[in-house]
Amino acid sequence: MPESGVFGFIYRVTDVIYKLAWSNILWFFTSGFPLVLFIFGDWIIPLALFLLIGPPGTVALFHVMSVWQKDGDLSVWNTYWSGWKKNWKRAYKVVDVYVIIGVILVVDLVVVANAPQSVLKWIGFLLFPTATLYILTSVTLLPLLVRYPWKLFELVKNAFVLSVSHLFSSTAVLLSLGVVIVTAVSFMPPLAFFFSASVTAWAFTWQTGRILDKIDRLQKERSESLESNAM
């Protein structure tokens, strides 16, 4: 493998593109294809299908990104199926519950937005920040799932705390992803097909890793400070 120079640069770029595209294709054909049915205007059938087959592959995709960012090199195929087998039971518990909560929030927002009574519309002022916090929590939820063997409540609580305590950077990641994906869908649909899920998983994993690394540094500095004060 070329390490430096022009050929090294080209190799690293093509390697990143290959891994993102290959992991995205694996996710789509094992988990994400029901979402295509949203194009036809229906949401119940694709949602039900995704809840049935989507969670293990989605978590496997995040497992690939976690291993990739930690070790730097990997076999996408082997790592994907390793993550699938390792986490499929927890994936159903976490992803299905989280998606169902999201659907309930969306339905509530639609009902409140179309309600004729002004009293009900005021409820939207409570639902909107709740939905915002729900979306922010998604940034760290699955990256934490593939890292730690936490139960559902502990996982969601820690994901919420990490995302909200780093509100600006988590929001920036979400907005940047939104702009990239909308642009790709509008002008380059094939790119959206090959990269949307994997780029999202990569960005969420990267953001979570940054937060955890920062926490580790602060803990080490605090520990060293306490040790020096004790001497």
Rank of each mutant, 00 (worst) to 15 (best):
V97N: 08
I104T: 09
D96A: 12
L142D: 01
W27E: 00
I123S: 11
S225D: 09
I101N: 00
V13H: 00
A197E: 09
L109C: 03
A172F: 07
Y134A: 02
F40H: 03
Y148R: 13
L49D: 07
T79F: 06
W202C: 09
Q207R: 14
A48Q: 03
N158Q: 12
A48L: 14
R217Q: 11
D108K: 12
S169L: 15
L142Y: 10
L175Q: 10
F28G: 02
V106T: 15
F194I: 06
G83W: 01
L167R: 02
Y11S: 15
F38I: 12
L105Q: 04
V107Y: 04
V179G: 01
G209R: 10
L145K: 02
F9T: 13
F193K: 03
H63D: 06
A131H: 07
P129A: 06
A113G: 10
L174N: 11
L26R: 03
L51A: 04
I17F: 13
G72I: 07
F128T: 15
V180C: 03
M1D: 10
L191V: 05
F7D: 00
V182I: 13
K85V: 04
V13Y: 05
F28A: 05
S82E: 13
V95I: 13
V36D: 00
I53Y: 02
V95Y: 04
K93G: 13
P46A: 07
V161E: 00
P2Q: 10
R222K: 15
Y18E: 05
Y18F: 14
T171R: 02
N78P: 06
P149H: 14
L49F: 07
V156R: 04
S118R: 08
V161T: 05
L177I: 04
V156T: 08
A203N: 02
E154Q: 15
N114T: 14
I25N: 01
P143T: 13
T140G: 00
L162Q: 00
L26Q: 01
S75N: 13
E224L: 14
H166E: 03
S225K: 15
V97P: 10
F168R: 07
F28D: 00
T132R: 10
N78L: 13
F128Y: 12
R147F: 07
Y148I: 08
T132Y: 12
P116S: 11
W22G: 08
V146H: 02
F38T: 11
W43E: 09
S163G: 11
T14F: 15
G8N: 07
V106L: 15
A48H: 05
A159M: 03
A172W: 04
L127F: 12
L142W: 04
L51I: 05
I123V: 15
N24M: 02
L141A: 08
P129E: 05
T132W: 14
F153Q: 05
Y80Q: 02
W77I: 08
T132S: 13
A184F: 06
A197N: 05
V119K: 10
V199Q: 01
T130D: 08
P56E: 01
V97D: 00
V94H: 11
W206R: 15
P189V: 03
S82G: 15
V185W: 06
A21T: 04
Q219S: 15
